[in-house]
């Protein structure tokens, strides 16, 4: 999937996250989370998994997480990517 424009998905509510996506020449992932120390690694793994599933290889993706569970990360990342397509 190609990322053609800027887009975002999600909210700042607890247990949710906001995902910002914009076009880029390579893949850049930035993650900020209220549970960074304990779950930062799992959040990043999940973001990468969605990027791979949707075959996104070039984009800048910024995640601002408020303690979301994996299913929500999955859904918000996909929603942002599809909106940017």
């Amino acid at each position: 999937m190609r990322i053609n424009k800027k887009a975002q998905a999600g909210t700042m509510q607890s247990s949710d996250l906001i995902v910002f996506v914009e076009p880029a020449d390579d893949l850049a992932i930035e993650i900020e989370s209220t549970v960074q120390q304990q779950f930062g690694h799992l959040i990043e793994a999940r973001v990468k998994q969605v990027l791979k599933r949707l075959s996104v290889e070039q984009c800048r993706i910024m995640v601002s997480d408020r303690g979301a569970l994996d299913y929500a990360i999955d859904a918000r990342v996909e929603a942002a990517l599809r909106r940017a397509n």
Binding site: G10, A75, R82
Partner: peptide, 14 residues
């Protein structure tokens, strides 16, 4: 609507 469908779907799957 698009985001809610995805979120609900992923929730139900899990």
């Amino acid at each position: 609507k698009d985001a809610a469908r995805l979120l609900s779907r992923r929730f139900i799957e899990g």
